Computed example of a mutant assay.
Amino acid sequence: MCLAVPGLIVSVSGDDSIIRVGRVDFGGVVKEINLAYTPEAQRGDYVLVHVGFALAVIDEVEAQRTLAYLREIAALDVAHADAAP
């Protein structure tokens, strides 16, 4: 199973569509992500990212919903660890 995580493009650099990259914010962690598969992606867009590549541009509502689910999962993991004997 693969997991793609939503992130917000904060800047874009490069003119060549193959090596164009975006700095993408994943809730405070910013990484450089290849935008070759999403040539339409621009600063301010949310993208789904897997292994360093943006695979799709998604709308903000969908991105925020997915990020909320990921925060819930993280909270459950912390609660489970705190409850362990």
Results as ranks from 00 to 15, higher is better:
1 M>D: 01
32 E>W: 08
79 A>F: 15
64 Q>V: 03
75 A>S: 14
75 A>Q: 15
67 L>E: 05
6 P>G: 01
64 Q>Y: 03
78 V>Q: 13
71 R>M: 10
45 D>K: 04
30 V>I: 15
2 C>R: 11
72 E>V: 02
63 A>E: 05
34 N>K: 03
52 G>Y: 09
21 V>S: 05
15 D>T: 06
55 L>G: 00
51 V>K: 06
13 S>T: 05
74 A>R: 11
22 G>F: 00
53 F>T: 04
77 D>H: 12
66 T>W: 04
70 L>W: 05
24 V>N: 06
58 I>W: 06
57 V>S: 13
68 A>Y: 05
84 A>K: 15
7 G>Q: 04
64 Q>C: 06
71 R>I: 05
48 L>I: 02
1 M>S: 08
58 I>Y: 02
23 R>Y: 04
63 A>F: 06
53 F>S: 12
84 A>F: 15
55 L>C: 01
80 H>W: 09
51 V>Q: 04
2 C>P: 09
16 D>L: 08
9 I>K: 04
12 V>Q: 05
7 G>S: 11
17 S>M: 08
26 F>S: 10
42 Q>C: 11
74 A>C: 08
79 A>D: 14
67 L>M: 14
29 V>P: 00
56 A>K: 10
7 G>L: 02
8 L>C: 01
43 R>E: 15
77 D>P: 02
68 A>Q: 11
35 L>M: 07
19 I>G: 00
7 G>T: 02
42 Q>V: 14
5 V>R: 13
18 I>V: 12
55 L>W: 12
16 D>R: 10
38 T>D: 08
55 L>N: 05
79 A>E: 15
